[in-house]
Write a protein that binds this DNA or RNA. Sequence first.
DNA 1: AAAGCGGGGAC
DNA 2: GTCCCAGCTTT
Length: 395
Amino acid sequence: MFNVHLIPMAENIQHNSRNYRNIRKKLLPWFSRFQRLLPWRENRNWYTVWVSEVMLQQTRVEQVIPFFNRFMKAFPDVWKLADAPRQNVLKLWQGLGYYSRAGNMHRAAQIIVDTYHGRLPETLKEVRRLPGFGEYTGRSVLSLAFNQPLAVVDGNVKRVLARLFADETDTRPSASNRHFQILADRLLDRDHPAVFNEAMMELGALVCTPSNPGCNSCPLQLHCRAHSHGETAKFPVRSAAPAKRVVHSICAIIICDNKLLLARKPDKGLLGGMWEFPQIEITPVVDSGNRPDNLRIMKKIPQAVYLRKLQYITHTYTHFRAIVHPLLLNVEKEIELVGNGYSEIRWTVTEQLKKYPLPGWMLKLIKRESELLKIIADGNVKKIPVAGHVSVAYK
DNA sequence: AAAGCGGGGAC
DNA sequence: GTCCCAGCTTT
Protein backbone atom coordinates (compact mmCIF):
# COMPACT_ATOMS: atom_id res chain seq x y z
CA MET A 1 0.00 0.00 0.00
CA PHE A 2 3.00 2.31 0.35
CA ASN A 3 4.33 2.75 -3.15
CA VAL A 4 7.71 3.99 -2.01
CA HIS A 5 9.47 2.24 -4.85
CA LEU A 6 7.77 4.36 -7.46
CA ILE A 7 9.98 7.25 -6.39
CA PRO A 8 13.53 5.95 -6.36
CA MET A 9 15.52 7.59 -3.58
CA ALA A 10 19.26 7.87 -3.74
CA GLU A 11 19.58 4.90 -1.44
CA ASN A 12 17.40 2.85 -3.75
CA ILE A 13 19.49 3.49 -6.82
CA GLN A 14 21.20 0.17 -6.78
CA HIS A 15 22.35 -2.56 -9.05
CA ASN A 16 19.18 -4.58 -8.86
CA SER A 17 16.89 -6.00 -11.48
CA ARG A 18 13.95 -3.78 -10.56
CA ASN A 19 16.02 -0.66 -11.07
CA TYR A 20 17.35 -2.02 -14.35
CA ARG A 21 13.81 -2.67 -15.59
CA ASN A 22 12.77 0.88 -14.70
CA ILE A 23 15.76 2.32 -16.51
CA ARG A 24 15.01 0.36 -19.69
CA LYS A 25 11.37 1.37 -19.47
CA LYS A 26 12.33 5.07 -19.48
CA LEU A 27 15.22 4.86 -21.91
CA LEU A 28 13.59 3.19 -24.91
CA PRO A 29 10.60 5.56 -25.29
CA TRP A 30 12.95 8.50 -24.88
CA PHE A 31 15.08 7.18 -27.74
CA SER A 32 12.16 6.55 -30.07
CA ARG A 33 11.07 10.14 -29.58
CA PHE A 34 14.37 12.04 -29.59
CA GLN A 35 16.77 10.01 -31.74
CA ARG A 36 18.45 11.89 -34.55
CA LEU A 37 17.79 11.16 -38.20
CA LEU A 38 21.13 9.81 -39.40
CA PRO A 39 22.08 8.42 -42.82
CA TRP A 40 23.04 5.01 -41.43
CA ARG A 41 19.68 4.68 -39.71
CA GLU A 42 17.91 4.51 -43.08
CA ASN A 43 17.85 1.16 -44.88
CA ARG A 44 19.92 -0.48 -42.20
CA ASN A 45 21.97 -3.55 -43.02
CA TRP A 46 25.21 -4.97 -41.67
CA TYR A 47 27.33 -3.19 -44.28
CA THR A 48 25.99 0.29 -43.54
CA VAL A 49 26.21 -0.42 -39.81
CA TRP A 50 29.79 -1.57 -40.22
CA VAL A 51 30.90 1.44 -42.29
CA SER A 52 29.28 3.88 -39.88
CA GLU A 53 30.64 2.17 -36.75
CA VAL A 54 34.20 2.20 -38.06
CA MET A 55 33.95 5.83 -39.10
CA LEU A 56 32.47 6.71 -35.73
CA GLN A 57 35.46 5.33 -33.81
CA GLN A 58 36.79 8.31 -31.84
CA THR A 59 34.95 10.57 -34.28
CA ARG A 60 31.84 12.70 -33.76
CA VAL A 61 28.59 12.01 -35.59
CA GLU A 62 28.48 15.43 -37.29
CA GLN A 63 31.96 14.95 -38.69
CA VAL A 64 31.20 11.46 -40.02
CA ILE A 65 27.97 12.21 -41.94
CA PRO A 66 29.48 13.67 -45.15
CA PHE A 67 32.23 11.03 -45.19
CA PHE A 68 29.68 8.26 -44.78
CA ASN A 69 27.54 9.55 -47.65
CA ARG A 70 30.51 9.87 -50.03
CA PHE A 71 31.82 6.44 -49.03
CA MET A 72 28.49 4.67 -49.54
CA LYS A 73 28.08 6.29 -52.94
CA ALA A 74 31.55 5.13 -54.01
CA PHE A 75 31.35 1.68 -52.36
CA PRO A 76 27.66 0.78 -52.03
CA ASP A 77 28.34 -2.83 -51.01
CA VAL A 78 31.12 -5.03 -49.67
CA TRP A 79 32.02 -6.35 -53.15
CA LYS A 80 32.61 -2.85 -54.48
CA LEU A 81 34.76 -2.07 -51.47
CA ALA A 82 36.76 -5.28 -51.79
CA ASP A 83 37.45 -4.61 -55.49
CA ALA A 84 38.54 -0.98 -55.05
CA PRO A 85 42.22 0.04 -55.14
CA ARG A 86 43.55 0.82 -51.68
CA GLN A 87 44.39 4.39 -52.71
CA ASN A 88 40.76 5.06 -53.62
CA VAL A 89 39.60 3.91 -50.21
CA LEU A 90 42.23 6.06 -48.51
CA LYS A 91 41.22 9.05 -50.63
CA LEU A 92 37.63 8.76 -49.40
CA TRP A 93 39.04 8.65 -45.85
CA GLN A 94 41.13 11.80 -46.34
CA GLY A 95 40.35 14.25 -43.52
CA LEU A 96 38.72 11.68 -41.27
CA GLY A 97 41.91 10.60 -39.50
CA TYR A 98 43.11 7.29 -38.06
CA TYR A 99 43.83 6.04 -41.57
CA SER A 100 44.57 2.47 -40.49
CA ARG A 101 40.78 2.17 -40.17
CA ALA A 102 40.47 2.44 -43.95
CA GLY A 103 43.14 -0.17 -44.59
CA ASN A 104 41.64 -2.57 -42.04
CA MET A 105 38.17 -2.13 -43.56
CA HIS A 106 39.52 -2.79 -47.02
CA ARG A 107 41.30 -5.98 -45.92
CA ALA A 108 38.25 -7.14 -43.96
CA ALA A 109 36.02 -6.56 -47.00
CA GLN A 110 38.29 -8.79 -49.09
CA ILE A 111 38.21 -11.51 -46.43
CA ILE A 112 34.41 -11.27 -46.20
CA VAL A 113 34.09 -11.62 -49.98
CA ASP A 114 36.75 -14.29 -50.45
CA THR A 115 36.10 -16.45 -47.39
CA TYR A 116 32.50 -15.77 -46.41
CA HIS A 117 30.92 -15.26 -49.86
CA GLY A 118 30.15 -11.62 -49.11
CA ARG A 119 28.22 -12.34 -45.90
CA LEU A 120 29.33 -11.20 -42.49
CA PRO A 121 29.88 -14.09 -40.07
CA GLU A 122 27.30 -13.76 -37.31
CA THR A 123 29.19 -14.77 -34.21
CA LEU A 124 31.25 -12.41 -32.08
CA LYS A 125 34.15 -14.85 -32.04
CA GLU A 126 34.33 -14.90 -35.83
CA VAL A 127 33.90 -11.19 -36.55
CA ARG A 128 36.51 -10.37 -33.91
CA ARG A 129 39.10 -12.06 -36.13
CA LEU A 130 38.48 -9.60 -38.96
CA PRO A 131 40.86 -6.60 -39.20
CA GLY A 132 39.44 -3.58 -37.39
CA PHE A 133 36.79 -5.53 -35.48
CA GLY A 134 37.62 -4.90 -31.81
CA GLU A 135 35.33 -5.64 -28.90
CA TYR A 136 33.16 -2.56 -29.48
CA THR A 137 32.82 -2.80 -33.26
CA GLY A 138 32.16 -6.53 -33.22
CA ARG A 139 29.40 -6.14 -30.67
CA SER A 140 27.86 -3.06 -32.22
CA VAL A 141 27.61 -4.49 -35.74
CA LEU A 142 26.09 -7.78 -34.58
CA SER A 143 23.77 -6.02 -32.17
CA LEU A 144 22.59 -3.16 -34.39
CA ALA A 145 22.40 -5.18 -37.61
CA PHE A 146 21.14 -8.54 -36.33
CA ASN A 147 19.65 -7.55 -32.96
CA GLN A 148 21.98 -9.89 -31.10
CA PRO A 149 21.91 -9.48 -27.28
CA LEU A 150 25.41 -7.98 -27.00
CA ALA A 151 25.89 -4.84 -24.91
CA VAL A 152 28.33 -2.26 -26.29
CA VAL A 153 30.72 -0.05 -24.32
CA ASP A 154 31.99 3.15 -25.89
CA GLY A 155 32.82 6.56 -24.46
CA ASN A 156 29.16 7.52 -24.23
CA VAL A 157 28.14 4.33 -22.45
CA LYS A 158 30.99 4.61 -19.96
CA ARG A 159 29.98 8.17 -19.11
CA VAL A 160 26.29 7.29 -18.72
CA LEU A 161 27.03 4.25 -16.56
CA ALA A 162 29.59 6.10 -14.43
CA ARG A 163 27.03 8.81 -13.61
CA LEU A 164 24.07 6.46 -13.30
CA PHE A 165 25.81 4.41 -10.62
CA ALA A 166 28.25 7.07 -9.35
CA ASP A 167 31.00 4.68 -10.38
CA GLU A 168 34.48 6.01 -9.59
CA THR A 169 36.38 3.76 -11.98
CA ASP A 170 38.91 5.77 -14.00
CA THR A 171 37.50 5.76 -17.52
CA ARG A 172 40.72 6.73 -19.31
CA PRO A 173 42.56 3.38 -19.23
CA SER A 174 41.22 0.97 -21.84
CA ALA A 175 41.24 -1.64 -19.10
CA SER A 176 38.22 0.14 -17.60
CA ASN A 177 36.16 -1.13 -20.54
CA ARG A 178 36.14 -4.55 -18.94
CA HIS A 179 34.52 -3.16 -15.79
CA PHE A 180 31.87 -1.17 -17.64
CA GLN A 181 31.20 -4.10 -19.95
CA ILE A 182 29.97 -6.07 -16.93
CA LEU A 183 27.63 -3.23 -15.94
CA ALA A 184 26.37 -2.83 -19.51
CA ASP A 185 25.80 -6.58 -19.83
CA ARG A 186 23.60 -6.50 -16.73
CA LEU A 187 21.65 -3.42 -17.79
CA LEU A 188 21.14 -4.53 -21.42
CA ASP A 189 17.53 -4.91 -22.51
CA ARG A 190 17.77 -8.41 -23.92
CA ASP A 191 14.39 -8.06 -25.59
CA HIS A 192 15.49 -4.96 -27.52
CA PRO A 193 19.29 -5.04 -27.63
CA ALA A 194 19.78 -2.95 -30.77
CA VAL A 195 17.53 -0.13 -29.63
CA PHE A 196 18.94 -0.26 -26.11
CA ASN A 197 22.54 0.08 -27.30
CA GLU A 198 21.72 2.95 -29.59
CA ALA A 199 19.67 4.62 -26.88
CA MET A 200 22.54 4.50 -24.37
CA MET A 201 24.91 6.08 -26.88
CA GLU A 202 22.37 8.64 -28.04
CA LEU A 203 21.68 9.62 -24.44
CA GLY A 204 25.40 10.13 -23.89
CA ALA A 205 25.69 12.21 -27.06
CA LEU A 206 22.60 14.39 -26.61
CA VAL A 207 21.89 14.61 -22.86
CA CYS A 208 24.53 13.03 -20.66
CA THR A 209 27.29 15.11 -22.25
CA PRO A 210 30.82 15.46 -20.84
CA SER A 211 30.22 19.05 -19.71
CA ASN A 212 26.92 20.68 -18.74
CA PRO A 213 24.77 17.55 -18.93
CA GLY A 214 21.07 18.20 -19.55
CA CYS A 215 19.83 16.44 -16.43
CA ASN A 216 16.50 18.29 -16.51
CA SER A 217 15.62 16.64 -19.81
CA CYS A 218 17.12 13.27 -18.93
CA PRO A 219 14.72 10.32 -18.85
CA LEU A 220 16.92 8.64 -16.22
CA GLN A 221 17.19 11.63 -13.89
CA LEU A 222 15.38 9.93 -11.04
CA HIS A 223 17.56 6.84 -11.41
CA CYS A 224 20.88 8.68 -11.54
CA ARG A 225 23.06 8.38 -8.46
CA ALA A 226 25.43 11.15 -9.53
CA HIS A 227 22.53 13.54 -10.08
CA SER A 228 20.80 12.68 -6.83
CA HIS A 229 24.04 13.48 -5.04
CA GLY A 230 24.52 16.67 -7.03
CA GLU A 231 27.79 15.31 -8.36
CA THR A 232 27.31 14.95 -12.11
CA ALA A 233 30.40 17.07 -12.67
CA LYS A 234 32.52 14.58 -10.72
CA PHE A 235 31.65 11.74 -13.07
CA PRO A 236 33.01 10.09 -14.99
CA VAL A 237 36.31 10.01 -13.12
CA ARG A 238 38.96 10.48 -15.75
CA SER A 239 42.69 10.82 -15.15
CA ALA A 240 44.67 13.51 -16.96
CA ALA A 241 45.93 12.86 -20.48
CA PRO A 242 49.71 12.72 -20.94
CA ALA A 243 51.36 15.92 -22.14
CA LYS A 244 52.03 16.37 -25.85
CA ARG A 245 55.56 16.57 -27.22
CA VAL A 246 56.53 19.17 -29.80
CA VAL A 247 58.22 17.77 -32.89
CA HIS A 248 59.92 19.91 -35.54
CA SER A 249 60.50 18.70 -39.06
CA ILE A 250 61.54 20.04 -42.43
CA CYS A 251 59.69 19.10 -45.58
CA ALA A 252 61.24 19.49 -49.02
CA ILE A 253 59.04 20.86 -51.78
CA ILE A 254 61.20 19.76 -54.67
CA ILE A 255 60.39 21.32 -58.03
CA CYS A 256 61.47 19.90 -61.37
CA ASP A 257 60.10 21.93 -64.25
CA ASN A 258 56.35 21.99 -63.50
CA LYS A 259 56.34 18.88 -61.32
CA LEU A 260 56.64 18.24 -57.59
CA LEU A 261 57.99 15.22 -55.75
CA LEU A 262 55.41 13.34 -53.66
CA ALA A 263 56.27 10.44 -51.34
CA ARG A 264 54.01 7.71 -49.97
CA LYS A 265 54.35 6.80 -46.31
CA PRO A 266 54.60 3.11 -45.31
CA ASP A 267 51.24 1.37 -44.71
CA LYS A 268 51.89 1.02 -40.99
CA GLY A 269 52.52 3.90 -38.64
CA LEU A 270 51.60 7.57 -38.67
CA LEU A 271 49.49 8.57 -41.69
CA GLY A 272 50.12 5.13 -43.21
CA GLY A 273 49.66 5.06 -46.99
CA MET A 274 49.17 8.82 -47.28
CA TRP A 275 51.25 11.05 -49.58
CA GLU A 276 53.33 14.05 -48.58
CA PHE A 277 56.26 16.25 -49.48
CA PRO A 278 59.18 14.26 -48.01
CA GLN A 279 60.04 15.19 -44.43
CA ILE A 280 62.89 14.69 -42.01
CA GLU A 281 62.56 15.26 -38.30
CA ILE A 282 64.88 17.92 -36.87
CA THR A 283 63.88 17.89 -33.20
CA PRO A 284 65.52 19.38 -31.30
CA VAL A 285 65.78 22.54 -33.34
CA VAL A 286 69.45 23.52 -33.47
CA ASP A 287 69.12 27.29 -33.68
CA SER A 288 66.41 29.86 -34.15
CA GLY A 289 67.28 30.40 -37.80
CA ASN A 290 67.17 26.68 -38.59
CA ARG A 291 70.19 27.22 -40.77
CA PRO A 292 72.09 24.07 -39.74
CA ASP A 293 68.89 22.07 -40.16
CA ASN A 294 68.36 23.42 -43.64
CA LEU A 295 71.83 22.17 -44.39
CA ARG A 296 70.92 18.72 -43.14
CA ILE A 297 68.23 18.30 -45.75
CA MET A 298 70.39 19.88 -48.45
CA LYS A 299 73.03 17.24 -47.76
CA LYS A 300 70.44 14.55 -48.43
CA ILE A 301 69.54 16.13 -51.77
CA PRO A 302 72.85 17.42 -53.09
CA GLN A 303 71.47 17.94 -56.61
CA ALA A 304 68.99 20.53 -55.33
CA VAL A 305 69.23 24.29 -55.50
CA TYR A 306 67.83 26.05 -52.48
CA LEU A 307 65.20 28.68 -53.39
CA ARG A 308 63.60 29.80 -50.15
CA LYS A 309 61.81 28.66 -47.04
CA LEU A 310 58.08 29.02 -46.49
CA GLN A 311 56.10 29.83 -43.39
CA TYR A 312 55.91 26.86 -41.06
CA ILE A 313 52.79 24.73 -40.55
CA THR A 314 51.57 23.62 -37.14
CA HIS A 315 49.45 20.53 -36.77
CA THR A 316 48.24 18.77 -33.63
CA TYR A 317 48.04 14.99 -33.52
CA THR A 318 46.79 12.71 -30.76
CA HIS A 319 50.04 12.56 -28.84
CA PHE A 320 52.32 15.27 -30.23
CA ARG A 321 52.30 18.68 -31.87
CA ALA A 322 54.09 18.95 -35.19
CA ILE A 323 55.76 22.04 -36.59
CA VAL A 324 56.69 21.55 -40.23
CA HIS A 325 59.20 23.90 -41.89
CA PRO A 326 58.82 23.75 -45.69
CA LEU A 327 61.81 24.42 -47.94
CA LEU A 328 61.43 25.18 -51.63
CA LEU A 329 64.07 23.38 -53.72
CA ASN A 330 64.75 23.12 -57.43
CA VAL A 331 66.35 20.26 -59.38
CA GLU A 332 67.26 19.96 -63.05
CA LYS A 333 66.38 16.27 -63.42
CA GLU A 334 63.86 14.04 -61.67
CA ILE A 335 65.87 12.54 -58.82
CA GLU A 336 65.37 9.15 -57.12
CA LEU A 337 65.57 10.02 -53.39
CA VAL A 338 66.50 6.53 -52.20
CA GLY A 339 66.78 5.24 -48.64
CA ASN A 340 64.32 7.73 -47.27
CA GLY A 341 61.82 5.59 -45.38
CA TYR A 342 59.07 6.06 -47.97
CA SER A 343 57.34 3.28 -49.90
CA GLU A 344 57.06 5.07 -53.23
CA ILE A 345 58.09 8.30 -54.94
CA ARG A 346 56.17 10.05 -57.66
CA TRP A 347 56.67 13.23 -59.66
CA THR A 348 53.37 14.94 -60.23
CA VAL A 349 52.04 18.14 -61.75
CA THR A 350 50.25 20.38 -59.27
CA GLU A 351 46.86 19.78 -60.89
CA GLN A 352 47.19 16.10 -59.95
CA LEU A 353 47.94 16.76 -56.28
CA LYS A 354 44.27 16.54 -55.36
CA LYS A 355 44.10 12.99 -56.71
CA TYR A 356 46.33 11.70 -53.91
CA PRO A 357 45.24 10.98 -50.34
CA LEU A 358 46.93 13.78 -48.39
CA PRO A 359 47.11 14.33 -44.62
CA GLY A 360 45.75 17.46 -42.97
CA TRP A 361 49.02 19.36 -42.78
CA MET A 362 49.55 18.89 -46.52
CA LEU A 363 46.09 20.29 -47.25
CA LYS A 364 46.87 23.28 -45.03
CA LEU A 365 50.13 23.87 -46.86
CA ILE A 366 48.63 23.51 -50.34
CA LYS A 367 45.81 25.87 -49.50
CA ARG A 368 48.14 28.50 -48.08
CA GLU A 369 50.57 28.29 -51.00
CA SER A 370 48.02 28.08 -53.81
CA GLU A 371 49.55 31.11 -55.56
CA LEU A 372 52.98 29.54 -55.47
CA LEU A 373 51.63 26.28 -56.87
CA LYS A 374 50.05 28.18 -59.71
CA ILE A 375 53.42 29.67 -60.68
CA ILE A 376 54.92 26.17 -60.65
CA ALA A 377 52.05 24.75 -62.70
CA ASP A 378 52.72 27.38 -65.36
CA GLY A 379 56.36 26.34 -65.48
CA ASN A 380 57.55 29.73 -64.24
CA VAL A 381 59.86 28.54 -61.49
CA LYS A 382 62.30 31.33 -62.31
CA LYS A 383 59.70 33.89 -61.31
CA ILE A 384 59.64 32.61 -57.75
CA PRO A 385 61.28 35.16 -55.50
CA VAL A 386 64.41 33.60 -54.01
CA ALA A 387 65.16 34.39 -50.39
CA GLY A 388 68.31 33.26 -48.67
CA HIS A 389 70.89 30.81 -49.84
CA VAL A 390 72.43 27.62 -48.57
CA SER A 391 75.90 27.15 -49.91
CA VAL A 392 76.85 23.80 -51.35
CA ALA A 393 80.24 24.40 -49.79
CA TYR A 394 78.78 23.09 -46.52
CA LYS A 395 78.15 19.62 -47.98
C1' DA B 1 49.23 -2.44 -19.34
C1' DA B 2 50.81 1.16 -22.19
C1' DA B 3 51.71 3.49 -26.25
C1' DG B 4 50.70 4.80 -31.09
C1' DC B 5 47.30 6.48 -34.08
C1' DG B 6 43.92 12.25 -36.80
C1' DG B 7 41.02 15.62 -36.97
C1' DG B 8 37.56 18.71 -35.46
C1' DG B 9 34.30 20.96 -32.36
C1' DA B 10 32.93 22.57 -27.74
C1' DC B 11 34.46 25.18 -23.97
C1' DG C 1 44.90 26.80 -25.08
C1' DT C 2 42.28 21.81 -23.13
C1' DC C 3 39.22 18.02 -23.56
C1' DC C 4 37.12 14.32 -25.85
C1' DC C 5 34.75 11.91 -29.39
C1' DA C 6 29.83 5.16 -31.56
C1' DG C 7 38.30 2.42 -30.43
C1' DC C 8 41.84 -0.78 -32.63
C1' DT C 9 46.49 -2.55 -32.97
C1' DT C 10 51.00 -3.40 -31.54
C1' DT C 11 54.47 -3.99 -28.13
